[in-house]
Design a protein around this nucleic acid. Structure first.
Lengths: 334, 334
DNA sequence: CTGAAAGCGCTTACAG
DNA sequence: CTGAAAGCGCTTACAG
């Protein structure tokens, strides 16, 4: 197989100049319909494939978007990534993936690599740590950059953030458990001090304060394993807890998995609410009540925002919050 | 911010010719150390960023690898994708992601887009259906293409396949359940007729035949939801089943989730084995016995193979099988 | 509506 | 070990 045909070959085949071929490629309306179709036919005949590298070099827009995710193995992020990529594909953009695994060093390295590839924009759910470096690399890229879920803060402003309304989510969860009659509600998981933890916790705290119930906070990892081990420990140290709001669904699923061995009937002795509404929560035992941030809509909205920003050059607002809702299932009592 | 500096600017700054700068960029050993470091210094000083589009155009090698996955939301594939991407990053390649969601139309469309971006190679876990179209697009790309987990078959040969040794996995699972004393072992899930289903089932079938036990096969979707509903139905239609080998961990986790409501004690009344060893299986109740294909090693091996193929031009063997092992946890009886 | 020419930022032989 | 020149395949003004 020889090297691929170029627009010159197409032009020759179609009997037009290469400019005309280029115009057809870009869908310019100035080309006569007849010419257009004969050019398209020529392309098909000789098996022409568009060479984006050449186009990128000349026009300095790559059609590539960098998706930087702090933990791709967390199903919440996976669902987001999968949806986001498919939305972008619809808009004609390809997604270059970088999983940073919560490692800020890897993060700035991978972002640099994406910049070299000339990505036209970034969507980033950042890993924390070494904020200055990461932000500097992104600054230098000088390209539309939208943060999702998490934000790297700095004085003088950072990149726009799109995130679910976690505060309201925390409120909804707490109010729901109160309605169910819980007398002692704990908040479980989430790394101490992180903005996301603070937000999810804030709704819970304000509701508890309103009714005069004492909060109980047990921060930590956001994994199933943590939920599982903390369920046991909570049973021992705080046997009066009858409701728990978990930082995310993974922690909640860990709690549910621990219940049988602890002799706890989840949904009755202990009412459990999670955050995120990952798909697994529908099929756990019992099915998980959770604060949904509607990942499909969220991903579509993120895709729309970055594409618009790239095309129109107008940045989204510094911070936007998407609506959340409580999805009630058996884990909080039928 | 003006346009980025180019190697010409670097050359001027360092007082050398641009060829020399290019040589430094490529790590050529022919450049004097002193020259090299002054060039590097110049790059840092003026904030030079390598433009890969230009390099790609000239050298026709992009450093991009297309990762095409049939179902990214399945944690098994997610874990693979995450590991694979990170391995590739180590080798200096970026990963362009395409989730086809089992849709062959989307698949050929996305592959075409990746070809336009000039990916240097493909890793594909293909969606089934319209094999001819997909294979034709990949043929035309004329670039190293490695299939993983699944294969699109065709007369006259297809692209090389790298997959775990599912047949042995099925044997191991069946032998284990027999040792545990199971009298009636079912195989649950997996789409009828698919090569992967056939392979995973084949080991089970041969072991059962050896001991003269009658097989019971209930194929279907490979989801938690399927496992959950089938557990109930199996209870009704085949109450004598005391062991079940599930097509994958998702099905197995669905079965486990259904057990409490059915009054079944998993690991005692019903011994359950899955396939894949996804992380969730460690924290289910009870923890899941499963056939592990060692995703981290598998991903590293896939990355190595495609990178070698790209660099040396030598294709891997038509089919390679990676080792599997049985990870025994409580779901098959402690 | 279409053509001829220049140029995007690199790499690649080829001299020296 | 380093320099001058050509060229990768497009897009972009600019004429006509």
């Amino acid at each position: 197989m020889k090297s691929r045909p170029t627009i010159l070959d197409v032009a020759k085949q179609a009997g037009v100049s290469k400019s005309t071929v280029s115009l057809v490629l870009q869908g310019a309306s100035s080309v006569k319909d007849e010419t257009r179709s004969s050019v398209r036919q020529a392309m098909a005949d000789i098996g022409y494939v568009y060479n984006r590298s050449a186009a990128t070099l000349r026009s300095s827009t790559s059609g590539l978007i960098g998706l930087v995710i702090n933990d791709l193995r967390n199903p919440f992020f996976t669902e987001f990534a999968a949806r986001f990529q498919m939305e972008l594909a619809k808009a004609g953009f390809a997604t270059v993936l970088a999983n940073t695994d919560e490692d800020p060093k890897l993060q700035s390295q991978m972002i640099s690599s994406l910049v070299e590839h000339g990505v036209s924009g970034f969507i980033i759910s950042p890993a924390y740590g070494e904020e200055a470096t990461t932000l500097a690399v992104l600054d230098a890229a000088n390209t539309p950059t939208l943060q999702v879920f998490r934000t790297l803060e700095r004085e003088g402003g950072t990149f726009p953030l799109l995130a679910p309304d976690y505060l309201t989510g925390g409120r909804l969860a707490a109010e729901h458990l109160l309605e169910k009659g819980c007398k002692k509600i704990a908040f479980l998981g989430g790394l101490e001090g992180r903005p996301v933890t603070r937000e999810r916790m804030a709704g819970y705290l304000s509701v508890l304060e309103e009714v005069g119930q004492e909060p109980l906070i047990l921060t930590g990892q956001s994994t199933r394993a943590f939920g599982k081990s903390m369920a046991a420990q909570m049973r021992k140290d705080h046997p009066d807890v009858d409701g728990v709001i978990c930082f995310n669904d993974l922690v909640a699923l860990g709690v549910l998995a621990a219940c049988p061995d602890l002799g706890i009937k989840a949904g009755r002795d202990l009412r459990v609410v999670g955050f995120d509404d990952i798909e697994d929560g529908q099929d756990s035992y019992p099915p998980l009540t959770t604060v949904s941030s509607n990942i499909p809509d969220f991903a579509a909205s993120a895709a729309r925002q970055i594409v618009d920003w790239i095309k129109d050059g107008v940045a989204p607002p510094p911070e936007a919050r998407s609506p959340v809702r409580l999805v009630i299932r058996a884990s909080s009592g039928a």
